[in-house]
Design a protein around this nucleic acid. Structure first.
Length: 210
DNA sequence: GTCAAGATTAGT
DNA sequence: CTAATCTTGACG
């Protein structure tokens, strides 16, 4: 993506596609582009290649499982909002809230999709790691890990709770490619100790070696 | 009040 | 394997 064909011209994701349980939405976000202009207005963007679903009444690994707190309150927003949280005190991770259309009523439980990896498409020269020897994100190499996704796009707690619609500086496009079942690997989630049995991790195949 | 664990990552 | 570093829940 450069020059004439900018990610800015790609239509945004229809919010109605988020009005479903997180495990249903998570695979459908593969191929969508997460776009940010938080870094001095420069566009940084990448295609979502890995997601995980969290939430609902029975997911013990969900931050919302034990109710609303100051940290996770955005997770309880209606579908179509960003929930950004600080992980291990040092990283940020970004989720997109999902759920049934409740007419704006408060959700009884939190639900959303964690963005775990991107294929960088735009603003790659602007992407910077906060730590590490090589601070750059090499072009066309996968940006893997939820903490890396937010570093690459300059997403922090300032974007927590923002709506996808009328978003100020972060948004999601419609899918730029449609994937079939065989393109997606479905496994258990990473880095959790509870509700480990759920197959709620969705990855595009043939990207792991990239 | 103390303490341990956590949807993580980089360096040894 | 361990450090870095913040929030939460359990305990008392």
């Amino acid at each position: 993506m450069h020059g004439k064909s900018s990610v800015i011209s790609i239509p945004r994701l229809a919010l109605s596609s988020l009005a479903h349980p997180a495990p249903e939405v998570a695979p459908n976000l593969l191929g969508c582009i997460l776009v940010s202009s938080t870094t001095n207005g420069v566009i940084t963007a990448g295609m979502i290649t890995e997601t995980e679903a969290y939430g609902g009444p029975n997911d013990e690994a969900s931050h919302g499982f034990r109710g609303k707190t100051l940290r996770n309150r955005s997770f309880f927003l209606p579908y179509g909002h960003f929930y950004v949280y600080r992980s291990y005190g040092i990283h940020y991770c970004v989720n997109i809230t999902t759920g049934h259309d409740d007419g704006g009523a408060p959700k009884t439980y939190a639900e959303g999709v964690l963005v775990r990896a991107l294929l960088p498409l735009d603003g790659i020269k602007t992407m910077r790691r906060r730590r590490g020897k090589d601070q750059t994100f090499p072009a066309s190499k996968l940006t893997a890990g939820p903490g890396m996704v937010t570093q690459a796009l300059g997403i922090s707690i300032e974007q927590d709770g923002l709506p996808l619609k009328n978003a100020t500086n972060v948004w999601v496009t419609q899918p730029i490619k449609v994937f079939i079942k065989d393109d997606i690997s479905i496994t258990t989630r990473i880095g959790i100790t509870k509700s480990k049995e759920l197959n709620w991790r969705f990855r595009l195949k043939d990207m792991s070696s990239n």
